[in-house]
């Protein structure tokens, strides 16, 4: 290992950037509380709270206005929840400037892929997700975002919080 590698390691140490994928579920709240408890005293941890809202198909709605209203309500509700998550983190000692929130409304076939795309852009060193504890049958029909991330993440660690 040469001097250059050491300095590189040191730089990465000071930029411990966690990408935390959240939604409105109880397990997302548990993820945030776990991180607050685990990293609250750590001055070098930077957290990006990411919420992906998959743009729903027009097929789910009888009219465009219904679809627009659904999206508006969903965005408003998620913004409120993200604010709550931020408060949990600041309450545990995180500085405001160490927390970023990103709410992304986008069409996507896989939320897991969308989270990993964000990771690739931000170059976070850890992706943190919760696990819903879905049944075998549910995973068969719906798939599992945490499994997708575990299997497809590259150049980062993955933390799955139960």
């Amino acid at each position: 290992m040469n001097e250059q590698t050491f300095s590189d390691l040191a730089r990465r140490d000071t930029e411990r950037h966690l990408l935390v994928a959240v939604d409105e579920s109880d397990n997302s709240r548990r993820v945030v509380m776990y991180l607050a408890d685990f990293f609250g005293d750590d001055k070098n941890v930077y957290i990006t709270l990411l919420s992906i809202i998959p743009e729903p198909s027009e097929d789910y709605f009888a009219s465009e206005s219904e679809q627009a209203k659904w999206l508006k309500d969903k965005k408003k509700s998620m913004e409120k929840i993200m604010k709550g998550y931020r408060q949990i983190l600041t309450g545990a000692g995180f500085k405001e400037e160490k927390i970023e929130t990103r709410l992304s409304i986008r069409s996507c076939t896989s939320i897991g892929d969308a989270i990993l795309e964000e990771q690739d852009k931000l170059k976070c060193c850890i992706v943190v997700v919760g696990r819903r504890g879905i049944s075998h049958d549910e995973e068969f029909v719906f798939g599992s975002t945490s499994s997708k991330i575990l299997h497809h993440a590259r150049n980062c660690a993955v933390m799955v919080v139960e």
Partner: peptide
């Protein structure tokens, strides 16, 4: 028909 999918968009079709 369309269905509200989860992580796997085509899981229901595949089953």
């Amino acid at each position: 028909y369309n269905y509200m999918h989860g992580e796997s968009m085509f899981g229901f079709d595949l089953q």
